[in-house]
Every structure is written in C-alpha cells, then in structure tokens.
Design a protein around this nucleic acid. Structure first.
Lengths: 401, 401
DNA sequence: CATCGTTTGTCTAGTGGATGAACAAAGTTT
DNA sequence: AAACTTTGTTCATCCACTAGACAAACGATG
C-alpha cells in the first residue's frame, strides 16, 4: 500500500533488468546461472536480460570461470569503463575535482586552492577544472555521463543554491549555468548530503542503511541516509544540524539563533578559541587547523586542550543525533576528521557517559576513511547512478530496423 | 535501482489491486470508469480487480450514480464495516481504548484511570478494556481484525518493550501476552510513533508527508513521518528527542545525560517548577496540569509564567527539529497540548526569532486536533492497515473447488 | 416515441514478459 | 569411454494487462 504508480509487464522487465545489473555490479564476477539462483529469476529470463545489457555495453563477458563439476560458466563483469563521471567538491577555500569510472574509482584528480574570489572568478576556476578532467578522460562508449557539484550551502529541491554563507552566495542557479556550458546531466547537491552518499557507496558506510554523516569543516553540516536512502526533507534542506541549539542561552550565532552547535564544535570554533589562547605567541606562522595539529603532535598542551574541547562538544551533538535517529553508524568527515586522534578520546568519553544504553547497541562511530574525498566521490556517484538508471529505465526502446 | 525483490505478474496484479482499493478508499464514491481514468489502468483490468474486491466484501456496490450524458455508473464504496480494529493508548496514569471501523471512525471508547499499579494489575485492566470493546463490536464479515497498543517507552523492532521508565517496566513482551490471549494480530508501538501515525491518518497531518509529532506528556517523545512513512531507526527506537541536550552543562537527567529537553519542556518540568513556586499556597488542591491550567485561566500570573517558560523551551527543541528535518509540519500532541493557548505565544515567539528563514517557509506548526486520541487511533490504524494489506497481498488464492 | 450520440461496464482476442522443461554444449568423475 | 553435472539457450505455456468491440443504459433531439 504505498506507490501510486500503475504496474505492467514493462515495469516488471525494467525492475528485473535493474536487479540483474545490480547483482553483476555487486559481485565482481558472476555467471548467468548464479544470477538466476541469487535473484530468484528464471534462467531464461536472466539470459535475455543479460543479452540486452551486453548490447548496451554496460557489462562484458570475460573468459570462462572455474567449473564446479560441470560445464564452465561464462563470467560477466560490470563494464565500469563504459563511461566516466565528474564530481566536484566546491569548498570554501578549495575546489577539488575528480574523474571517476562508473564504479567510483578515481581516474584523475585536480585541486585548486582559492580564497576570497567573486562568483565569476570561482566559476572560471570551476570550468577550468572540469575542462581539464573532461580532456583527461579516456575514450569510452558513453563518454562523460554527468557532472556533480557539492556546495557548502542550502540547496533546494530544484537544485538551486539558496544560500551559501561562507561563500557569500545567495540564490545561485549553478545547475543551469553548467547545463548551458556542457550540455550534460548536472547534479548540484549540498556538501554534507553528497559526503554521506560518498561514504555510503565507497567509504566506511558501505554496509549500513542508517547512516548519519557529520561534516565538520568551517561550519557543520549533516547528511542523513535513512533506510538506505538520502533524506532531503520537505524542500531539500534538511540536515542543518550546525544550527541545533546545544546551549539554549548560549552565544548568539550569525544565523540569529543562540548556542548553535557549530559555535562549539567546528573548525571556526577551534580557530576562535586558538586566537584567545597563548598559541599565537608559540606559533610564528598563521593559526590554522594544520598548524594547530602540528603543535598538538609536538606535545603542545594548549593545542591538545583545544582539540579536547572540540571533541567534547562534538560528543554533545552526536549524542543528540544518536538519541534522535538510532542510527547504525555515525561518520565524522571533512577537514576536522583529519584531527581524529586528538578528538576521539574526549568525544568518545562524553558519548559513552551520556548516551542511552539501548541506543549505543549496534552503533559504530567512525571517522571518514576517504580523507577529504567523500563529497567529490558522492556527487560523482550521483551522476553515475543517474546514468545507469536512465539506461535501464529508458522508454521502450523500439528497434528501428 | 532500489528493491532487491524479483518482479513477476503476480506482483503486478497485487500492486494494481492495492492501487484500486486505495483509490476507492480515498474517494468516498467512485465508478469503475473513474478508477480506470484516475489510475491509468485499463477498464477491463479495473473490472476484474473490482470483482475480486467485491467477493472479498472489502467494497460494496451502492446504487447508480448521476449520469454525465450516458449510462449511469455503478458507484463503489469502501466497506469500512467489514471489520473492526482496537487501539489502546496505555498511558502512565490512564488506559484509553477505542473500537474503530476500518476507516478509523470511533465506534466505542473506554477509559480507565490508573495509578501505581503492578504489571499484572495493569494487564488485568487492559484485558478488561479490550474484552469490553470486543463484546461491543457489531457483527461483521471479518470481525476484530487486530489489536494495537501504544506504550510510553522504548519498543524494539520485534515489538518488545525494552524500557518504560514511567511505568517501571523493563523487557516486557506484551505482544506475545496479547497474542496468546486473543489469538489476533497484535501491534505494540511506541506512543509517539503511534500518535504521529494517528495525526497523519486522521488529524491535522492528513495532507503532509514530512511530519514531526511531538508528544509532550510526563516525558517527551517524538514520532517521525518522513517521506510519508513512519521512520523507526535501526532497531526501532528513534525519536528519543526527550533526551536531546539543549543545555550541554545543564541539570543531570535520570537517563545519565545532562540538560535533556524533557527536563525543561515536559509536564514533569511544569510540575517541578510549580512545586518551587508560590502556587502551592494559592492552590489548596493537588498540583497538576489541570489545576495549573485552571489557575492560568483565572488570571494567576505565576501559573501563566510557568506555561510561558515551558513554551519557550518547547520552542528551543522544536527549533532544533525544524533545522534538522525541514519538515512540512510540526504537531504538538498529548496532554500538554491541552494548554495550547498558554504555550503558543512564548513558543512561537522563540521559534520566529530563532529559526532560519528558509526552514520556516512552507512550515506549519499545529497543536493536535484529535485531543488525546492520537495514539489510540494510530495503533488502531496500524492494525486496520495490516489487515487490508494482508487481504490484498495474500498468497495466490487457489480456488479449491 | 424513435433515433442518435454518450457513457459504462463486460468480453474476447492479442501482446509482452516470466516460467518450466527439454536440450545441447562443455565440463568432471569413475 | 560412460555417466553424471553444470551452464546457457530455446520453445511452448501461462498469466496479467491492453485494445477494441459490443451491449446496456441514459440523455438529448426532433
């Protein structure tokens, strides 16, 4: 009792075709017979669907596999090189672009540091990176199948950027801009949502269906994977956890509210507190996440205390998240995740002390393993997925003989 | 690219049959022809599915409708009286049971006040209420189709009650107990989840798909309707918003954490603050939500201040919820909702001042319109839904001639 | 009141896709 | 070499939806 769609044989075929392809993607090498047993479909059905997928070059036949006491099976392989996808993480002070195959393997990567640029200047840098990546793509049947961009701001359901405070953007239609220039399918998504998707597909979240990805950078954003799917909220702007109040009568935030989480647990907060400490005198260079990390490594107590404090407040917010969502996994990503070793002890101490026992059950808390690539990989995966879906679910492909 | 189910014609038929039934339920009177056009199915298909539904007595033919220039249509009607469902709201100090038809109309209702009873005594009262309701049910083709119970505690995915602090329950398998006694389908669900479902089906949430239901009673629970479906979390215990920290260094809560929301915004908190005020002297009777409300109505300033304070802190938590979920609607229910007029001004003031403008867009905030019936109606609806699904999706019904 | 056009609902032949069984091809085991 | 296994294709069959024909029922019109 859920869908309002009408069902007919065509839908059945498409769904089954998608199921077969998913099975091939999930199992690096698999025979038709194995697909039939694992999907429950008839051998003949599998054969005909596989034939179509072969025609579309989405899969390949590789040589015969090992016999298990009879005829040797023909092994099938997902043709991840039939197309390429581009994912861009548009950060506050950097742009990171990756070229991936359809399985999300990084083939090419390009990063530029930026600071205080206008919208037009950023656009130029963005185009430059995308152009480079397009040129570097090997030739393939489908070429570049799409471009995805992750941005640190509020993106609505039409993929318009309503607000990106740290970039000083307001009401920007980046999607149309890119569509006009490249004439390719474009995806624009919030950075945290994309990161969550990246971790779910390629990172430590691979095997979980209820994941909360906490992106701790200059601000804090959260991406929600609920029941295996990205939850976007009514208009597309869920996950504004950064502005969750954790001190009702705390300091005033730029958002208008009081005691927001990101005032206590973000990179912004770390730098703010560092300014007021004695670190400035110890350090002759600039205060930044990296330099403070180096000081902590060299045994500087003040630096370690600063991270401890961030860790504690990360724990406060994550504890709320755990109580609210009862997730399987919480993943901490983005820049701050690089300081994992300095944050983890105080963070875990707080969480273990404060969380409800039944919520801690079956819960893992991880730092991102994709380094700072979660977002770029996530948006690249969006484009790749969209492409694959469009191939499988395309309208009745008439055979024009 | 989502389901891992194999598709065949039987599935198509079941889904279409469900679609036809849904359409009939949604439109109080509708003809076969109208169903065909509104679902996109063929007239013949609709005819044969309707025939099956008639055989199963799930729908009825009522007389001919109005002609629109040709043959008069035969109007079809959902047979809501083909079975009855029982829903029980097992509160901390009351038990409320309702008997509803399959559409959720209340046919019979019974409430008992309880206090400080043992598990066995509560069970006895519960059985008594259910027995009364079963006896009062009119005769019908399918009789009682199921019993649902909403409880103020943590319910896991197997519907076992892990913890109900205010009832002093731990690891209770109420579902099995009821199944053994009544031999009927039983649903045990968290009170807030059930309330959310009730509001979504019968209350002010009828037309929205992303609803956050905040149940403010002795404690605070939250039920989440995300993308039109109840979200339960990994193990079934999401929504423990009551233990969301809104003052990181606030008072110690019984849950082990600090500064939990329900210490500031629940009925418990209201009574606690009332104790410390001068109300005790003003009032000769007992301090309770009702008596404090009466004082507020009579113009007592202290009482109004107490509600103001609760309202403000409700606003703090709801503001967090808005930022996190970007819902279409927030509904405040349970006992505290009866004090709506005293809470609303300070609550809304806080929310309007603090929330992000783009989150306020398209958002409505309501107090429950079902009075205190949300939970009972919600669990009754669960049972009714389950029954209808089981009829439509039953295994290939072979005709044993 | 007869005729025509319209709408409703049923019926039948046809279509698309899944299924099961038969079968050939290509192995392994004895 | 013979017997058994496993793989993958082919083909007849089944099942549910579809299109279109058709009869029944009704309003409008002359």
């Amino acid at each position: 009792m859920k869908s309002t769609k009408t069902w007919n044989q065509q839908v059945v075929k498409q769904e089954n075709k998608a199921l077969v392809l998913e099975t091939i993607i999930a199992n690096s090498q698999i025979s038709r017979a194995d697909i039939a047993t694992s999907t429950g479909l008839n051998k003949g059905t599998v054969s005909s669907l596989v034939k179509e997928l072969l025609d579309e070059q989405l899969i390949n036949e590789v040589g015969p596999g090992k016999s298990s006491g009879g005829r040797r099976p023909v092994m099938l392989l997902f043709n991840e090189l039939s197309g390429y996808s581009i994912g861009v993480d548009l950060g506050v002070n950097y742009i990171l672009g990756v070229l991936t195959d359809l399985r999300g393997n990084i083939c090419q990567e390009k990063k530029t540091n930026i600071s205080d640029l206008t919208y037009e200047e950023i656009l130029e840098e963005l185009f430059a990176i995308i152009d480079t990546l397009i040129k570097s793509a090997p030739s393939s049947p489908y070429g570049i199948v799409g471009i995805g961009v992750g941005v640190p701001g509020i993106v609505n359901k039409d993929q318009k950027i309503l607000l990106a405070p740290n970039l000083n953007w307001k009401s920007i239609d980046l999607k149309s801009e890119l569509e006009n220039k490249y004439n390719l399918p474009i995806v624009v998504e919030n950075e945290a949502n994309a990161g969550a998707y990246g971790e779910k597909n390629f990172g430590v979240g691979k095997h979980n269906d209820n994941i909360i990805y906490v992106s701790v950078g200059i601000g804090i954003g959260v991406g929600l994977i609920l029941n295996g799917e990205l939850y976007r909220g009514n208009n597309g702007f869920s996950g504004e956890f950064g502005h969750m109040a954790i001190e009702a009568d705390g300091a005033k935030c730029s958002c208008g509210s009081n005691g927001c989480w990101e005032l206590y647990a973000s990179e912004k907060s770390l730098l703010f507190n560092a300014q007021r400490s004695d670190l400035k005198e110890t350090l002759d260079g600039e205060l930044s996440l990296e330099t403070i990390m180096k000081l902590a490594e060299s045994g500087n107590d003040t630096a370690q205390q600063l991270f401890n404090r961030i860790g504690k407040y990360l724990g406060v917010g994550i504890n709320n998240i755990i109580n609210i969502f009862n997730p399987e996994q919480v993943i901490i990503g983005n820049q701050m995740a690089e300081a994992a070793q300095w944050l983890e002890p105080s963070m875990m101490e707080w969480i273990e002390e404060q969380s409800l026992w039944f919520s801690r059950k079956d819960l893992t808390i991880d730092f991102s393993g994709l380094q700072t690539h979660s977002t770029a990989l996530g948006v690249a995966a969006f484009s790749a997925e969209n492409f694959i879906s469009s191939k499988v679910f395309q309208e009745n492909n008439k055979y024009a003989l």
